[in-house]
Amino acid sequence: MDAPERTPGRDLPAHPQLEQEIRALIVEALMLEDVTPDDIDPVAPLFGNAPGSLGLDSIDVLELAMALHKRYGVRTRSDDDRNREVFYSVRTLAHFVATERKTDEKVQA
């Protein structure tokens, strides 16, 4: 995946608790036993070869999508361009999970 021109999620609010959970989930789901959750910069790219990136690939992204579904009941979008933005960093993922969960609660209420 190419690095996007701007950094997605730069202006998103942080969800510290959720970000911590997602960092732990990434390490666990992707079996990154030599990376600790604290090693993952919440705004650094998760995928691709860019400097500072965690270097995950398209198979990791699907594994992670499955883990997020299992944990939070959220499903990714039908638009892969949008998915690339959602899965850009821990911050964008946390924002996505937070937003989806809110929508879910509204639907159920």
Partner: peptide, 12 residues
Amino acid sequence: TTALHPEAVALA
């Protein structure tokens, strides 16, 4: 199109 995410595959 090359669809990757499950939702994207189903929709495509």
